[in-house]
Design a protein around this nucleic acid. Sequence first.
DNA 1: ACGAGTGGCTAACGGCGTTAGCTACGAGGA
DNA 2: TCCTCGTAGCTAACGCCGTTAGCCACTCGT
Lengths: 192, 192
Amino acid sequence: MSTVQEPARTSRTPRAAQIVAAARELLEEQGWGEVTMRALADRLGIRAPSLYKHFRNKEAVAAALVEVALAEMGAALHGAVGGASGADRVPALLAAYRRHALAHPGLYRLATTGRLPREALPEGLEEWAGRPFSLAAGDPHLAQALWSYAHGMVVLELDRRYPGDSDLDRTWQAGARAFAARVPAPEAAGGA
Amino acid sequence: MSTVQEPARTSRTPRAAQIVAAARELLEEQGWGEVTMRALADRLGIRAPSLYKHFRNKEAVAAALVEVALAEMGAALHGAVGGASGADRVPALLAAYRRHALAHPGLYRLATTGRLPREALPEGLEEWAGRPFSLAAGDPHLAQALWSYAHGMVVLELDRRYPGDSDLDRTWQAGARAFAARVPAPEAAGGA
DNA sequence: ACGAGTGGCTAACGGCGTTAGCTACGAGGA
DNA sequence: TCCTCGTAGCTAACGCCGTTAGCCACTCGT
């Protein structure tokens, strides 16, 4: 149903995969600030300098986590837009985006804060992960706006920026309606 | 024209004000990662430990900068909504938000990333700075959604997340139209 | 004249990412 | 069977970070 298949993931040695998994646990349990090379090594029963046998530096570990984050978020979003049609795709996409991000806040923040380590990511992964927004919005500018809205909502929710008595379900709804109303009617063109 | 006056700013000794000013320069020139206590002290011709005579710790310096950021952004936004009416307030507000944030990216990022140091901020400042969104949207949920959209756009633009060939003016427009169309018609109630 | 507060200073601590250099082990070829 | 070589661990150490302790000079009010 999707236009293009998910790009291949970077291949890792078993030990490197273990390191990424441990880093992910640490990230979700304690936050990125507590993911230090020493703490990460501790969890694996080794010493910090040994990590450098498997990753060039801490940034490379972060890039591996960003890859995981993009791949999993992309899968969630593709699933959501694949299961809906027409203007229903906007609320379905937003609900999946919110649910997935809040379920993996550490990974989400790491992957969306600061510059993307594009040179360390598989070709096409970023584009693939974002395509559901184009599919749901039907227009490239509306798609970018919709993505920005979703990201803003999630990040402000994660950072507890809204007043404590906010009804965020209704806020998400308000935005969803605003965007859904601008989705162009699908042309009745048959696929190739 | 505004409902309530801008809250008073925290009073600072002359030296503390100098420190905040120097921190701001460093922040905008080099980014928060380069604002270290030693670099900050250097710029003032003193040693790092002397800074602790004026601020309890680095977090307190950050909080002072966040206060500046909120006050200046609030002023810009109040000015923008004050100069427009009806649904025109949405694009006016968004334009001012974008312009101000991109003109002070370090301050913007510092004030909007991670948790807000609310206990260190003047009472009412956060609410005052955000009120223009309520004024423009006319509905609390739409206001939150609009703010989230603006923040998402700015932060993704600052982080260069959009493809290099994006026409962001048009993306901002697409979002502005989506939200403006949902602003309820103003009731013809006279002011008190 | 003097005591107290103010705002500098140096030395130092523990934690961070990272590098250099050593070593134990296991697989492959002579 | 031994030798070599790559792999993956180790300790020690460096320079940076935020921060604290403790000292001292200067200024000002009484």
